[in-house]
């Protein structure tokens, strides 16, 4: 579903390697966790996947489509939720949702069903008539989540999705991620919350200084590390 081939990106005229020959192959139906300390290259990698940052070298395939060669086809298969919800403050919630739905050309009857479902789940029904500028950080985050779910993307990409969500929404989001994978769709997300990754993910990659230093299921990761009890210990040991 998602394939990264030798993906690299340098900053400051080649002196800082943010992402260094990253290779990943993620199958349909997988929940994939992307872990790493601050500044390890998580967001840079994600931005290269969704088309926000052009890689210096390497390729990104979504369902076999090269993101940087056929951006429109590739982008219609994915949805992206960034780490901070910078969206149009002057639009009403509902206007934003309809705008996004128009961009994905979602038919009327489908968008109505989806909107009702997700607005209910994330408890945003009452606020959706207000302008986004009046929302709290968490409400904006939830609105971006809803907008990203409207077109039922094959690949759902989230950058630090749990930050700023209340416990209930956070729980709901985890449920939704699980459901999507049961339907054969793919979820790719970065996180700092090791517990979430441990419980939720089919596979995990740990990135440090731009390189993937560990990749596999929880069990496989355990077999690599000396301290084997928790992901926290593994993480700390590997990224030292």
């Amino acid at each position: 579903m998602l394939k990264l081939q030798n993906l690299s990106k340098t900053y400051s005229k080649g002196t800082v390697k943010a992402v260094d020959s990253v290779n990943l192959d993620i199958a349909p139906g997988e929940i994939f966790g992307f872990l790493g300390p601050n500044g390890a290259g998580k967001t840079t990698t994600i931005k290269m996947i969704v088309g926000l940052l052009k890689p210096d070298s390497g390729r990104v395939f979504i369902n076999g489509i090269d993101v940087w060669k056929n951006p429109i086809e590739a982008k219609s298969q994915i949805s992206y939720v960034p780490d901070s919800p910078e969206i149009y403050d002057k639009l009403k919630g509902i206007e934003y949702l309809n705008f996004i739905a128009d961009m994905y050309e979602i038919p009327k009857h489908i968008r109505q069903v989806k909107m009702e479902k997700y607005l209910e789940i994330f408890n945003l029904k009452d606020a959706v008539g207000d302008i986004i500028g009046s929302y709290s950080h968490g409400m904006k985050q939830k609105l971006v989540l809803i907008s990203a779910l409207l077109h039922e993307p094959n690949l759902f990409i989230l950058d630090e999705p749990m930050v700023g969500l209340d416990p209930k929404s956070s729980f709901q989001l985890k449920e939704i991620m699980r459901e999507r994978c049961d339907e054969g769709k793919t979820v790719f997300f970065s996180t700092h919350v090791l517990e979430v990754a441990e419980k939720l993910c089919d596979r995990i990659a740990i990135i440090n200084k731009g390189r993937i230093i560990a990749l596999g299921t929880m069990d496989e990761l355990r077999s690599h590390a000396e301290e084997r009890e928790s992901l926290e210990k593994i993480f700390l040991e590997l990224t030292e």
């Binding site: 509902i94 949702l97 128009d102």
Partner: peptide, 20 residues
Amino acid sequence: KHKKVKIEDLSRSSLPFLSI
């Protein structure tokens, strides 16, 4: 008080360029 959003509002669609 929150403005009530009607069902029709949930399904107001238009062509992408019009929407932009």
